[in-house]
Design a protein around this nucleic acid. Structure first.
Lengths: 147, 147
DNA sequence: TGACAGCCATCAGAGCTCTGATTAGTCTCC
DNA sequence: GGAGACTAATCAGAGCTCTGATGGCTGTCA
């Protein structure tokens, strides 16, 4: 089975190219792509926990800890203990963080829009559906789970 | 523009799930996914340079240096200077490396086969074509290049 | 011959990502 | 009340990935 036949190589190439384009888009705002994703979710749901944030951003809690550490040392977010559950830490964007997010989002959304413009609505729908089915196959295949 | 509308989140999810499945598949052979990819190409084209290997595996030369360093310290590859061009280093799989590759490949190809089995040939073709068009858009869009 | 463009290899540094393990608080059910 | 399950946060360690910079070799062309 050659590389070209494998879905993995196609997916990897495309995902990487898109990430590179987005990285270039958010860089002027001083952000990385994961930092942008975290700020994006955070701004919509202020006070969310790091664990929940990790789930939304599709990374592990450990990874999110790393991302938040960098965001906090750049003063783009603030973290304070939850008033009732002190072991839970609430995270919020700072004004500086929101400004960086706005700047990054404008350009990142632009990348997505230009990309979407290269397809018809039906094609985009087909692509999303097929990707969802790949995801479903990977999640549900009992052999994959145990291998 | 919400997360769900963006192609990026779908691509990221699927690419990550597939990588996770492949990582589990090649782990018993003592390999990571990038190491498996490097060994795979290396075994088909013995003596290839690290720079060329990097291009085939879709990573930068610097990243490939890291991967090769780990493979070499595990004695899965051998590196010797090119007889004529001494600044070029030829890389080859060792017998140990080939054994690990065979073991990993059997399971990794199995993941791809089970995944492919969830689709018709036409669907797979559509998916590959659409992904290629995404890649093309990202590569050719002059705005993306400069942003 | 010598400047220069083009590769190859690699160091340095930063950031992301994972697995594994630890610590601590909450909640349910006996 | 207390055991066990669950969740949150985080440390430790390994590996991948990038950008930026450096040094070396080759081949072209004035």
């Amino acid at each position: 089975m050659s590389f070209e036949e494998r879905l993995g190589s196609h997916l990897k190439r495309v995902e990487q190219e898109l990430t590179t384009a987005k990285a270039a888009a958010v860089k002027p705002a001083g952000l990385t792509v994961p930092q942008y994703a975290a700020l994006f979710v955070l701004d919509e749901q202020p006070g969310i926990s790091a664990a929940e944030l990790a789930r939304r951003c599709l990374v592990t809690p450990q990874t999110m800890t790393t991302i938040l550490r960098n965001l906090e040392s750049a003063a783009l977010i603030e973290r304070t203990p939850h008033p009732l559950h002190r072991h839970v830490i609430e995270t919020r964007t700072t004004p500086t963080g929101r400004k960086a997010l706005d700047q990054a989002d404008e350009r990142a959304a632009g990348v997505e829009r230009r990309l979407a413009a290269a397809f018809t609505a039906e094609e985009l729908d087909t692509l999303r559906t097929l990707l969802a089915r790949v995801s479903e196959s990977l999640t549900n295949d009992p052999i994959l789970k145990t291998s």
